[in-house]
Amino acid sequence: MARVLVYAETRDGELRPVASETVTAGGDLAEQLGGSVDVFLLGPPGMAQRAADLGRYGADRIFVAEDQSFSSYAAEAAVRFCEDLVGREAYDAVVFPASAQGKDLAPRTAARLDRGLATEVVSVGVDDGRPVATRPMFAGKAIATVAFSELPALISVRPNVFRPKERPADGSVEIVEIASEPTAQRVTGIETGDREALDVSEANIVISGGRGMKDPENWSVLEDLVEALGDDATLGASRAVVDAGWRPHSEQVGQTGKVVSPSLYFAVGISGAIQHLAGMRTAKTIVAINRDAEAPIFSVADYGLVGDLFEVVPALAAEIRRVRAGG
């Protein structure tokens, strides 16, 4: 029977939201292959109890390695853990999240196992009994379907694409000892901003500002809209305003920034350069607010509003608060 192995990401002893998405992607593939999903993860002592939850999303067996040092990302231990599991069982595929951790772990594992890797995958399928994957290239200006000449196929899935799907399975947890070896590198800290902002690649709602914002001081207008929309929302930015030093590059959406797929994307004062459109065109719904009715952003927006953003955005925040308060 086909088996798919999934890496579930943790930080500080908690499963990260992307973990259930990755298990769901593994489940999608296993379903088409006619097989089951195993999960592996690392965390501090006590991690095993919290890992059992992944059974809800289709995890058949869950292998957990516990060590105090696994509170933060332990690259070398994770690679060894994966190598051990792949040595024990013939897996058809290993699925990682294309998160900051997964972007580091997946290629290391691929090199260790001498297998091919497809990153930032947005859908998985089966052709002739073997896994295939589709992935954007050129920041989404082209979509490639890729096949693998040897198994397991290594795949990392883009965050926010595979919405967690309930698919109840055994979820039996097994604690696995992995040999501790001296590490060549270690994580010694995490720095977060004033508030632990939701990353633009993981948020359900993104509000991006562009040059039309005129001044970095004016971002309070967008911050207020984020607040009105709630915990699912975060700020994004166009390349122009990042290059001008108005916003941090971690917020940049586009070909040289992040490619995002939120449910709802607001482009505020953004004209819509090709490289920006490439970064947000896979959003499920796009709203554009711009003074210039001819701006290219309107050609990709589901809903366009022509007008002065300094009048429209506060009105929008107020209206959203009003309807939410009214139920």
């Binding site: 001498d114 297998r115 091919g116 890797l117 497809a118 295939v132 954007p136 290239m137 989404g140 200006k141 082209a142 979509i143 490639a144 379907t145 890729v146 096949a147 693998f148 000449s149 040897e150 065109r281 796009i286 554009a288 009715a293 309107f298 050609s299 990709v300 927006a301 589901d302 809903y303 366009g304 509003l305 022509v306 007008g307 002065d308 009048e311 429209v312 009105a315």
Partner: peptide, 24 residues
């Protein structure tokens, strides 16, 4: 190579949107 592109396609164009209106 162990990974091979078997097909490359341009993304489907986004359906043209609509302008909801002007101003607040």
């Amino acid at each position: 190579p162990k990974v091979r592109i078997v097909a490359l396609q341009e993304p489907p164009p986004r359906a043209g949107g609509e302008i909801v209106g002007e101003g607040p």
